[in-house]
Structures are given as C-alpha cells and as structure tokens.
Amino acid sequence: MSLDLLLQPFSYDYMLTALWVSTLIGAVCGLLSGFITLKGWSLMGDALSHAVVPGVGLAHLAGLPLSLGAFTSGLLAAAAMSFVKLKTPVREDAVIGVVFTAFFAFGILLISLFPAQLDLKSIIFGNILAIAPGDVAQLVAISVLCVAVLALQWRDLLLFSFDPNQARTLGLPVRRLHLTLLLLLSATTVAALQAVGAILVVAMLITPGATAYLLTDRFGRMLVLGSALGAFTAFAGAYASYFLDGATGGCIVVLQTLGFLLAFVFGPKHGLLAARRARRRLCLVAPAVAP
C-alpha cells in the first residue's frame, strides 16, 4: 500500500470531520467509562443506548434536535426502570431488560412505520461519515459539558461510586450525584449513537474503562488511560472504516475489544500472564503449598 493511499482519508472533508468527531466522542465516552464500569452500570449503559432509539425517531419525525429526543427518551426509560424496581420484587437486571427492550421495540416500530423518513441503518449502526454540521455542533456541546462536569465533580463521583454510605455521612448530595451520573451517561449515549449506533454504544461506554482498570490501580490514571484508549481506538477505527466501506462503529469496537484482550493477557500486574508468573513465583517460594 502506498503512502498516498494511506493519506487518502485525510484529503476528504467528510473524513476529517468524522475522524476528529469520533476521537472526541471516544475520549469523552472513555472518560465516563471508568465510572460506569466501577459503579457496575454496564447493563444500564446498554439499556439506555437502546432506549434512546424511539426518542431519536420521534425527534426526527417532528423536526426537533435528535439529542433532545434521545435524551428525553433515555431519561424516561431510566425513570420507568426505577419506578418498576420500586414497585416489584423482580430482580433489577430483569426490570432493566423488560423496560429497555420495550423502548427499543417501540423505536423499531416507528422506523418500520415511517421507512421513508427514518433510516434504520444510521440509527442502529451510526453514520459518522455523513454527520450533519448541526449534529457536530451538538456533539461538541455535549462533550464539553460532560468533560466540564467530570473535571469538577470526579472526586465526589468517585466517593459516591466507591462508598455511597460514607458520601452520605459526609453530607454529600448522594441523590444529586446519582442523577448527575445518569445524565452524563444519557448525554454521552446520545453522542456515541452518532458514531457507532445504538447497539454498540455500550462498548464505547465500558470497554475503555475495563481495559484501563486492568492496567492501573489508581483511579485518576484509570480515567486518563480510559479516555486516551477511547480516543485512539475511535480515531483508528474511523480511519480504518474508510478502507472498509463504512461500518465505522464495528471497526471502533473491534479495536476496543482487541485492546481489552491485550490488556487481559499482557497487563503488567492484573494480566493473565502476570498472574501466572506470580503464581509460579509463589510455588517456588513455598513448594509445599499446592497451587
């Protein structure tokens, strides 16, 4: 492959936009993914990313900003989940499953009823290569807002995730922190929807964080690392998708998963090989102890 071909993506305006917007979204999702994985909200991320679909559809039909519709429907779903959880003895994961699939099905129903106005593929798989300038502006606004909130509140959110009881005894506004995290999750979901689509958003919101978690024992470093991983994989995935005729979301997420697997095997302290080495060392020191 010649250098010309490798540089070709950069000669198109739409590719340049796709590249920097993906990188931005990857960085923001990566930053938040640290909180999502540690709070144990992976399923929540999955659920919200599916639940925003009807909002996107309705907003599109009504000519409103997509973010507004997506955000509203995501929050409605979250409210429905907490309401049902409060009212029934059904396990939380089942409640989340029931609610988000219902929302998603409603979205699919809308798409099937208005095939001319709603493009199934771009909602389900994202379409960053054809993103409109207005959407870019929305994404930038969302990203700046999320980064600002996280920069100001990350220590409080850390304590809230780690030990909510302690947060309460210190008089921190626990309920507000919970809501903040939920709002951040919904906002980034809306952003990531454009890049990778409803089904793969959850990967953007957990994989970089999970990977970083395997590489460090410090929370601050984990956030930075997750953000960097998210940005890099999003950039590289968008770049690769130029040569693969689309499937930007697929490329980004495949790269993120590869990153996770690499960290899982080769991680310096928590990797598979490191753990094996540590076990062997233990056996050498104390041969009497069975492995």
Binding site: D156, L159, F162, D163, L172, Y213, T216, R218, F219
Partner: peptide, 14 residues
Amino acid sequence: FPVNVHDVVMMGRY
C-alpha cells in the same frame, strides 16, 4: 476498586 489506602483515608476529608 482502583484506589489506594491513602486515597480512601483522604475521602474522610471531603
């Protein structure tokens, strides 16, 4: 959780 002993004790000072 990826926090060390010092971090946790520091949380008491929030």
